[in-house]
Design a protein around this nucleic acid. Structure first.
Lengths: 204, 204
DNA sequence: CCAGATTTTGGCAGTGACTACCGTATGGCA
DNA sequence: TGCCATACGGTAGTCACTGCCAAAATCTGG
């Protein structure tokens, strides 16, 4: 690796770290990109070359967790589906679990600022889309239309588990561990502990 | 109702309609709020008094569908849970189904513009939160911690069904009807047609 | 019908995110 | 060392959005 890419990685990290620092100290809305650029000792245009929006400065970490897990899943074509889904979920949760400070800060910022929350949601949507595509590929044996439908539902459930577990974990830090929460969610889903809507004929 | 509220409603509608018109004609990004204000023959400050952000001009309709269904659900405390969930889902889908042009336009705009997509996701998140709260209230008999968890999963599944059905409906207009799609999703979920993650001990 | 209280409105000035562009500096390579 | 590609900083500009204030429209009591 050349000196160029090294410095690029370094400035990128520097900007992200300074931004994170300023956000947690003064809040997302009260921090301007010029302040971040100044703190990282670069020009605003340089900052925008690395991070297209202010929100990406906060959420790159989450993005890497989610999309990285899908990328990993794509490269394990021999794994059976239910186990594969579980692995994806566990992979994401493990990485988030490994950096609780960052996760907590991200949640705080998202709770304060609508645009961060919106960006976070968009990221989960991208995760769902990519996971759906990969699931469709693996369900190709079935009727293609139905495969798309089934895959979308399965991916949504996976994302749902992740969101619910992380949320529960963030909201009561003294509760169960992430792995335990994930297992409980899966057991509830499989065991019928969730009040699913009935498929019968509607009343009206 | 006085003249004041009448004119207020009228201006509100006028602004929203003109905005919708301009968005579908020229795209979301290529339409400025000043253009919308000019088309509706009001000042920009007036527009901002009615709609806090540019995105709300597009998504108010969806918001009404989602949050309206939850509000309705809140006022039906005697309904049993699975049937209630199904009613909420059907209520949302019926309203969306009743205005396909608007739904299609919203999806097109969301596909084009990240900020619209983000806002749309934030709205579904709000729906999930409110639905979760109401479910928690009805699951009060159970262990409270577990109730929160179960409710969040159930609300997520409900939202998941709605998203998947609407998406499938929008993407192939000649396919099955919304009601049929919803029934299929629920049958898949109940009948175990979805590859759920296993709850067993992880491999590693 | 009219004066006064209240609400709504439009314009104006300003902030800040984000874009396009351009001359310059710096690392990579022959 | 000299050439090329890339990265950088700065400038000017657009646009979403916010506060503020004076004027117009609406409601209310006489």
């Amino acid at each position: 690796m050349g000196l160029r890419e090294l410095k690029r990685e370094r400035t990128r990290r520097l900007i992200a770290d300074k931004a994170f620092e300023l956000f947690t100290d003064h809040g997302f809305g009260r921090t301007t990109v010029e302040q971040i650029a100044a703190a990282a000792e670069v020009g605003p245009s340089t900052l925008y070359r690395y991070f297209p929006t202010k929100e990406t400065l906060v959420l790159e970490f989450v993005e890497d967790c989610l999309l990285g897990a899908v990328a990993w899943f794509r490269e394990q074509p021999e794994v059976e589906l239910p186990d594969g889904l579980q692995s994806v979920i566990e992979r994401v949760l493990e990485q988030l679990d490994g950096n609780p400070v960052r996760v907590r800060a991200v949640f705080d910022l998202a709770a304060q600022t609508a645009s961060v929350s919106a960006h976070l949601n968009e990221m989960t949507w991208r995760f769902r889309n990519e996971l759906t595509d990969e699931l469709v590929r693996r369900l190709a044996g079935d009727d293609p239309q139905d495969a798309e439908f089934t895959a979308a539902l399965a991916a949504g459930i996976a994302m749902n588990i992740i969101e619910t577990v992380v949320r529960s974990w963030v909201e009561n830090p003294d509760g169960a561990e992430v792995k335990e929460l994930a297992r409980r969610a899966m057991t509830l889903l499989r065991g019928g502990g969730i009040p699913l809507p009935t498929a019968g004929v509607p009343g009206s």
